[in-house]
């Protein structure tokens, strides 16, 4: 006898693949203007989807929320791979790479980052949010945890 006969159809849920992120990119303190940013997000295969953004003439960027809907399978751990790189002076810099394992918004850091600055000469620092693990070159002043985190029990 197998327990699989007990499973009801998995729940259809919405998962946030990438929480909204806005900030500034700098190199040695100076804003990196008009630079191409590549965002790669994968969860159900290795390739995922790639999108491109650009910093404005003050080095600011703004990446909107990405979501998807899927049928949960309790036997399978959702792992969303996020990769953010910046192209600057013919080099590609990692600024963010993280595995997000919870469906809610802003679980990557545990809140919405305030005053995010990604200095390309920084070392990567390890990041642990709510069910997330990764590293980033970016820093922030604070995390707004009051945003609707919609924690699941």
């Amino acid at each position: 006898m197998s327990f699989m006969s007990l499973f009801t159809k998995g729940k259809e849920v919405e998962a946030v693949l990438f929480s909204p992120l806005e900030g500034k990119i700098t190199y040695q303190g100076k804003p990196v203007t008009g630079a191409k940013i590549k965002l790669k997000v994968a969860w159900k295969d290795q390739d995922g989807e790639t999108e491109f953004y650009q910093t404005d003439n003050q080095g600011n960027f703004n990446i909107p929320k990405k979501t998807m809907t899927y049928t949960e399978n309790p036997l399978v751990q959702l792992v969303i791979k996020q990769r953010l790189t910046v192209f600057f002076e013919n080099q590609e810099f990692y600024i963010w790479r993280l595995s997000k394992m919870e469906e809610a918004i802003f679980t990557e850091l545990g809140g919405r980052p305030i005053n995010l600055i990604c200095e390309l000469t920084n070392d990567e620092r390890t990041v642990r949010g709510n069910g997330s693990l990764g590293g980033t070159r970016c820093t922030w002043d604070a995390l707004d945890e009051a945003v609707n985190l919609n924690e699941r029990n």
Partner: peptide, 16 residues
């Protein structure tokens, strides 16, 4: 670790 979403089905469970 167990099975992740990128790995597809957890076949070892279904083989009764």
């Amino acid at each position: 670790r167990g099975t992740t979403s990128a790995n597809g089905g957890a076949d070892f469970f279904t083989d009764a």
